[in-house]
């Protein structure tokens, strides 16, 4: 499971400068030489942030994606949307807090939002199961998405999970089945679907709400078949090899764009989304509204055919000229 990072080692030079600036800013009456020093420090900070963040390793990207201050679904719901009316429960077993669902307004559009939610405080994190949905979360998402399709409300999903929860109850209540059904249903839902990976795109648990007409990633999020720790444990026989695994798995936004698995990368503010929620939310909103403008009003059969083709072409293999028979 993910562990929330309080401060990232590679951010140390940034944090030190930020600390110095904070101290100077606190003095009420600032003589000109302090003002000059502040200007200098701010410039330096800008340079250092740019330098550190343009060279993130894949593992560092994972650390940023898991940062405790990174904006979560709930943050975007309050910053990028005009209204959110939560709709609870899967009408089957429970109300999984790791998945938020409900009606929302953005620009002139009424939409349905499905967002995986991690929670920030200890109490919230426990309630949200650290963003690991139980089968109820996927059942709830499916039920609300079906309702949205019935009324032709576009669907926006925010992906942010270390993975679907691995537990006895989850297995008893059909974790594998609900993820399969969710992809199956999303592929033919008669309404536009936009999916954005905002933090962690943890394997099947992410893809379970990730089948749409548009799939985008925030710049420093990651989207992977398995966590770097899990991969290291299996292939290197030790979770300590997580950095090597992170390198090998090619799961950054740039990698996924290159593999044509995603359509767009949303640039993060300097130093990552956790430094500036407002700017990130504004960029996210701009992206969502632009996509909604393109998708809403498209004939539904055309939409679904294009969605099918989008996933249909994914994969890399060789096709030999001679057709062999058994």
């Amino acid at each position: 499971m993910s562990s929330a990072q309080t401060s990232l080692a590679f951010e140390q030079p940034i944090l030190e400068l930020e600390g110095q600036i904070r101290v100077l800013e606190q003095s009420v009456d600032r003589p000109p030489e302090v003002e000059e020093r502040l200007r200098h420090l701010r410039r330096e900070l800008g340079d250092v942030i740019k330098q550190v963040y343009s060279n993130l390793t894949p593992w560092q990207t994972v650390e940023v994606a898991r940062h405790k201050d990174r904006p979560y679904s709930s943050d975007y719901l309050s910053l990028a949307f005009d209204e959110f009316m939560e709709m609870h429960g899967d009408k089957h077993f429970g109300d999984d807090r790791a998945v938020l669902t409900g009606f929302a307004k953005i620009d002139r559009y009424k939409v349905l939002v499905v967002g995986q939610q991690k929670g920030r405080t200890v109490k919230e994190r426990a309630a949200c199961n650290f963003g690991c949905p139980q089968p109820e979360g996927y059942r709830k998402a499916m039920a609300k998405m079906r309702m949205a399709a019935k009324y032709r409300l576009p669907i926006i999903t925010f992906i942010d999970t270390p993975g679907a929860y691995p537990g006895v109850g989850a297995e008893e209540r059909g974790q594998a089945l609900v993820i399969a059904q969710s992809m199956f249903e999303m592929s033919r839902l008669e309404t536009p679907i936009i999916c954005v990976v905002i933090g962690e795109g943890g394997s099947g648990g992410a893809l379970g709400i990730g089948v749409g007409d548009r799939v985008a990633m925030l710049q420093h999020s990651y989207y992977s078949v398995i966590s770097p720790e899990g991969c290291a444990g299996i292939l290197w026989k030790s979770r300590g090899y997580r950095e090597q695994a992170a390198q090998a798995l090619r799961f950054t936004s740039a990698d996924l764009l290159r593999f044509r698995v995603i359509d767009a990368i949303l640039d993060e503010p300097a130093g990552g989304a956790h430094r500036d929620h407002h700017t990130m939310a504004a960029r996210l909103k701009q992206y969502l509204v632009r996509q909604l403008r393109e998708l809403v009003g498209q004939p539904v059969d055309q939409l679904i055919a294009a969605r099918y083709e989008k996933f249909r072409r994914m994969g890399v293999f060789l096709e030999q000229a001679t057709t062999g028979t058994a």
């Binding site: 399969a180 992809m183 099947g204 799961f251 990698d255 593999f259 099918y308 994914m314 890399v316």
Partner: peptide
């Protein structure tokens, strides 16, 4: 194992691809 780690995200996407084909078959 399910997905094949060595093919990364492309392996994961096969889940969606086959499931979408099955949805069409079902329809």
């Amino acid at each position: 194992g399910g997905a094949r780690m060595h093919e990364g995200i492309l392996s994961l996407m096969q889940m969606a691809k086959v499931s979408a084909a099955l949805a069409k078959y079902d329809s």
